[in-house]
Design a binder for these strands. Structure first.
Length: 214
DNA sequence: GACCAGGCACATC
DNA sequence: GATGTGCATGGT
């Protein structure tokens, strides 16, 4: 078993299944991916609840909501001017209709990813989160925690970019959306618990299982 | 009051 | 192409 796959087994055993993503609604999941950018999930969840209560958690609902109102609903998630505009672009991407949105999500994974990346406000991490957790295509999400994990354990060079890290995980694991989704969530949990500014490597479940942090 | 949170776009060098 | 900065709220 390779190191990446081994770390997954260890983390799953230590933390248990994380159960991301919380919603079965694909549009809600995509909106959540945007709203949680650079923000704690609790803040994003508050904004999502605002949108739900306002009937603005569907492509049609977003289209029917004024700019000022959308900004106000999104505010708890921070960066509210940008994020409200991005949520509207997301709705527009599927023609602001439920059917259009479904068609968008049924596209080939790579095609969908490109369409998302061409949307202002959606970068590689958010695009991959939507492709993985909403469309359920196997694409690995690289975030700050993942990068920290890889560097701490010398699994890639410091200069490795997003795509390089993504390939590292995808080439080390069976191609499975469920596995990728669970692994990403586990790495976030690992980061939250042990890899913050003052790391607690001695208590980390990966201590001993991997090369020690440097 | 500082620091961080499930990033991205844009400017500058 | 690498690095820095603004965007903004809410919890610890």
């Amino acid at each position: 078993m390779n190191t990446i796959a081994g770390a997954y087994e260890t983390l799953l055993l230590a933390f248990g299944p994380q159960g991301w993503w919380p919603s079965n609604d694909t549009f809600e999941t995509a909106v959540g991916a945007v709203l949680t950018q650079g923000t704690a999930w609790t803040n994003a969840a508050a904004a999502i609840e605002n949108l739900r209560r306002a009937g603005a958690l569907t492509p049609e609902g977003v289209a029917a909501t004024s700019e000022a109102r959308l900004e106000r609903l999104v505010r708890p998630a921070g960066f509210y001017r940008r994020k409200s505009a991005t949520v509207r672009r997301l709705a527009l991407l599927g023609g602001s209709s439920r059917d259009g949105w479904s068609k968008l999500l049924s596209l080939d994974g790579e095609v969908l990813r490109s369409a998302l990346l061409a949307t202002s406000g959606i970068g590689p991490e958010t695009a991959d989160a939507i492709v993985l957790y909403a469309a359920r295509h196997p694409t690995f999400v690289i975030d700050a925690y993942t990068r920290r994990f890889v560097l701490r354990h010398s699994l890639a060079s410091r200069g490795a970019g997003y795509d390089e890290l993504k390939s590292l995980f995808e080439s080390s694991l069976p191609r499975s959306a469920e596995l990728y989704g669970e692994y990403h969530a586990l790495l976030v949990e690992l980061g939250k618990r042990y890899c913050r500014k003052r790391p607690r490597c001695e208590d980390c479940p990966l201590a001993g299982a991997l090369r020690p942090a440097t």
